[in-house]
Design a protein around this nucleic acid. Structure first.
Lengths: 136, 136
DNA sequence: TAAGCTATGCAATAAAATTGCAAACTTATT
DNA sequence: AATAAGTTTGCAATTTTATTGCATAGCTTA
């Protein structure tokens, strides 16, 4: 039993060629990919199959998605501290129930010390949960 | 000169009815909206016009977008600390130049104390900038 | 092996973002 | 004031990404 097979069965995902291939690739590459990139890496596989494989992996906790998407882009007025570069901005909150997005204006996104060589231009933080209105 | 007009001219945005209306609305409502929501709030206005007005506002620093979009959703392998709920996960970095996304596995997204009544289920953090490979 | 659930491929749709172009409108210039 | 030049708007259309339906093929298990 390979490591790939071990992971899949541990996570209760049935072992299939597509899943083995995809997981192997992700393990090898060790970085995030978009659906289109993966589609190009597996020209023989169907886009839908890759898509659903990713969904399955995500559900079973083998992979995570970046952005756990918000749906459409939202726009909000800038505040004073909202510089052009949008560094040190406030976090945003989205309620899973009512889908409303709120600017958490009284919090500041903490500075992050990135590994050497990285230049930070902008940080965004999205907090998901249930807003006070939606807690019965 | 109204406050609306003042903001617009301060930000070097030409004053037009659409822009006045939209800015007034955003000032009044004080929360983020999606393009579709705004389209419904201004049935007489064209979607494209609203879209471009938002783009203009964003460019000129009157509003900001939530998510400053990543493009497509990316998928990455989970690490041990990657719980099902995805709380306390790591930040992600996207290079503006090469567009590559990286998991910053050695950093942890700091806990955030939200206003009373908010239930936090998931936090995501995206850092944009230039990666070490792209700094000549 | 037959029945039943699961995965895949193909086609199609849905939702969101974005562009091209021409008409309407503003502004600057003569 | 009239015209030229530039900007904004509306409409139509396209692109990109996400998602679903359905039929077929493949496992699994009684």
């Amino acid at each position: 039993m390979t490591i790939i097979e071990k992971i899949l069965s541990q996570k209760a995902v049935r072992i299939t060629p597509m899943r083995q291939l995809l997981l192997e690739y992700l393990l090898q590459e060790q970085k995030p990919f978009g659906l289109t990139e993966l589609e190009n890496s597996f020209p023989k596989a169907d886009r839908t199959t890759i898509y659903r494989t990713l969904k399955t992996f995500e559900e079973k906790g083998i992979i995570h998605s970046i952005y756990n998407k918000l749906g459409e882009v939202k726009y909000a007025l800038c505040k004073e501290h909202c510089t052009t570069e949008h560094i040190d901005q406030h976090p945003h909150f989205q309620c899973e129930q009512c889908k409303q997005v709120t600017c958490i204006d009284n919090l500041v996104i903490p500075k992050m010390e990135l590994p050497k060589g990285y230049l930070v231009q902008e940080i965004t933080m999205l907090i998901k949960g249930i807003c006070s209105d939606c807690q019965q």
